[in-house]
Design a protein around this nucleic acid. Structure first.
Lengths: 291, 291
DNA sequence: CCAAAAATGTAGTATAGCTACGTTTTTGCG
DNA sequence: CGCAAAAACGTAGCTATACTACATTTTTGG
């Protein structure tokens, strides 16, 4: 199963949206019912769905086959799985009329479905390359602005897992200075959802020119990647609605989790011992500042 | 449906784990099969499941009723939904033997199921109180250390949505100074998963003593909440395994998303107009620093 | 140890999901 | 335009699945 179909498997509703215009006329009637109120369909029988859509039962069965389900039972299971994340993206837009409960649900749904999407689209090979590069690093610097700056700071805080000194310069001057000081054996990680943030792009170019290896974490193919040895594309469900919060941070943070965990797993026993000690000492420190 | 059962509804596997010892003997056999390989059960028929568990078909039906499902069909739907997030928590521990693909899956699963858990446990009334308090604020300061410091910074960056000046002092000195300068009309938000971080707790106490209102975002009932007017408990699936990454950040970030969105929704048209302008100008700025 | 109650299985039924086939509609080419 | 081939769709009947009523076994309590 390749990268693309995997995501669609978990997200039946998106699959249907995409295939909708290739479908037969009566199949489209069924698709409409499904997309309009997927929750209801979950509790319907084959016959009820057929009646609601105004088609015959075999048509529904053929529809199941058309969207890659193995019969109606299978459709129901896949639908349930897909529903767990969210309705299709269009249904999660937040409007001024929403009450608090709805806002809570929508924000959670949106973040959840976005993470799911990112997971299905993430290229494992790229992650492996990134882990390889990071494992051999002597020093790692993370570059990000705004929301991505948060992600960079988070990554920097995980330096115990990365096992080498890590930095996350906060402003553009510090970024340029840091990038200029990097060299062979060092790694620069650029984080930018758009991939266009100029300071980050430039910093990566500088770092690379000085012999450092570069990794780009971004939402799409973009200028930033021309300066990157490893391309980590973390797709997000873009949504430009006024009220919809930025969700890219979340998936980027999870990618950082993955990288730091994977790098840490490669280290030896002694390293893990240290992390343990660090953790327990930190626990004391929280409540009692003077050890 | 109250707060507790709601979470269990979405998380059938957790429900089963909890009810396991109250079940009949043969029901427990069925439960075992379900918990051991839930994925397989999804594609089984009633008869197959009965055979695998070594019980009769009606027993399976009775089991369905016992765990709150309305027949086998319903069980399958609920199971599929529950599976979408994760196996039960115990199955997501990361070990040194895991290959990269497994690590990716587990980290995503763990984060997803954690968000789901947080959602089901989040108390809407508390959120409403927080939104009320924040909406009336003249100024908001976010206090967090370490991973929670990231969350505080993120919240601070959302000040356009909150509509008032926001801050997120980074070190303990700045925290104390800031807290001391707060007064009536100001709001202090403390963020700490453990709820024990001394600097944060103290800052909240100081802020409150000076007349500011206080909100606590934490993972559990803890010392921090004694100094808080609003208690926002964001439960996490605690997991102390060596390699398991910190997941509390994610759910805390989502809560910040909710708060900022909800507060923003309360503001007037003019405010939204400004946000729009800000967004488009920012887009230009990304690629072209000199406007 | 026996009676009542609970637990489990057997056998039978209704219905949901599926298939073979026939009818209608659409498409393509002379 | 018209006819034949193909595709789309529905009807009717079949199979297997989920469920129910009842009988049997096991457990519990006095």
């Amino acid at each position: 199963m390749d990268q693309n179909t995997r995501g669609l498997d978990d997200n039946l509703l998106e699959t249907i949206v995409r295939l909708e215009d290739q479908l037969r006329k009566s199949d489209r009637r069924v698709a409409r019912v499904l997309l309009d109120n997927p929750a209801d369909v979950l509790s319907m029988t084959l016959g009820q769905l057929a009646k609601t859509a105004g088609v015959s039962e075999p048509t529904v069965i053929r529809f199941c086959a058309a969207i890659g389900c193995d019969g109606f039972r299978d459709l129901r299971v896949k639908l349930a799985r897909s529903m767990a994340f969210a309705r299709t993206t269009s249904h999660t837009a937040i409007t001024a009329e929403d009450d608090l409960g709805t806002v809570i649900t929508k924000v959670f749904d949106y973040n959840l479905s976005n993470l799911n999407w990112a997971q299905s689209k993430l290229n494992e090979t790229s992650v492996l390359e990134a882990v390889d590069v990071l494992s051999e690093a002597r020093r790692i610097e993370f570059f990000g602005f705004g929301a991505s700056g948060i992600v960079a700071s988070d990554a920097q805080q995980k330096f115990p897992l990365f096992g080498v000194p890590c930095g996350a310069p906060a402003d553009s001057h510090q970024m340029y200075m840091t990038a200029e000081m990097l060299g062979p054996g060092d790694v620069a990680v650029g984080i930018s959802n758009t991939g266009h943030t100029r300071e980050v792009v430039t910093s990566l170019a500088v770092a690379r020119a000085n012999g450092a290896r570069t990794i780009g974490i971004t939402g799409q193919s973009s200028p930033m990647l021309t300066h990157c040895d490893v391309h980590l594309i973390v797709e997000t469900l873009e949504n430009t609605d006024l009220y919809t919060p930025t969700v890219s941070r979340l998936s980027h943070l999870v990618v950082i989790d993955i990288l730091s965990t994977a790098v840490s797993l490669r280290r030896d026993e002694d390293h893990h011992e240290r992390i343990n000690k660090m953790k327990s000492r930190l626990a004391h420190l929280r409540s009692n500042p003077f050890i």
